[in-house]
């Protein structure tokens, strides 16, 4: 503004300070205003501009009643949606928690009691004859011994029946 470029006049910042006092309370005008019509006018322009800016609602103020009604309807719709979205929340949480528990149980239980599945191509134990089953048991015991698994049960199973041997010695 040409007014502000003159050194004898108040600057825009000074005019702003008078139009909008920092403390929110109107300040006394400098004596300069009694002599300077240009500054008086400039201050009036600043005050007007501030009022205009405050009153300026832009595109919001130019809305019709229908547009406002549409905006209100949108808000109400959003609130209704939020209401329905909120209501099943505890139920959904419950389902989520239950599903998680089931998943954990489903994963944990089989890992504890994993059934020994027959390898493909190997007949199941029930398909074998009695002799084959005895051989199978013997081979299993040998395999256990070779692994160093010397459990008492395993040794005992390999030992001849002690009662029978005593009876045989007595007979001799």
């Amino acid at each position: 503004m040409e007014h502000s470029n003159s050194p004898s006049h108040l600057t825009d910042a000074e005019l702003f300070g008078l139009a909008i006092p920092a403390a929110g309370v109107p300040e006394a005008l400098p004596a300069h205003f009694s002599d300077c019509l240009a500054c008086t006018r400039a201050l009036q322009e600043w005050k007007t501009a501030v009022r205009d800016l405050a009153a300026d609602g832009g595109a919001v103020d130019g809305r019709s009643a229908e547009e406002w009604a549409a905006a209100e309807a949108k808000t109400i719709e959003a609130i209704r949606r939020a209401r329905f979205a909120r209501r099943p929340l505890p139920w959904r949480w419950g389902v989520g928690v239950a599903a998680s528990i089931l998943l954990v149980v489903a994963l944990a239980v089989p890992s504890r009691h994993t059934p020994q599945r027959a390898r493909p191509g190997v007949p199941a134990a029930t398909d074998l004859s009695a002799e084959d089953q005895a051989d199978d048991a013997l081979l299993r015991d040998v395999a256990m011994l070779s692994r160093g698994d010397d459990g008492a049960g395993a040794w005992n199973s390999l030992l001849p029946d002690s009662g029978a041997s005593i009876r045989e010695e007595d007979r001799l």
């Binding site: 009036q44 322009e45 007007t48 009022r51 205009d52 009153a55 300026d56 609602g57 832009g58 595109a59 103020d61 130019g62």
Partner: peptide
Amino acid sequence: DSGAETGPRSPATDDPSPER
């Protein structure tokens, strides 16, 4: 934004001349 351009034109201005 368009607010400055589309807003109401100086409702409180005493002198509504184009220059003002």
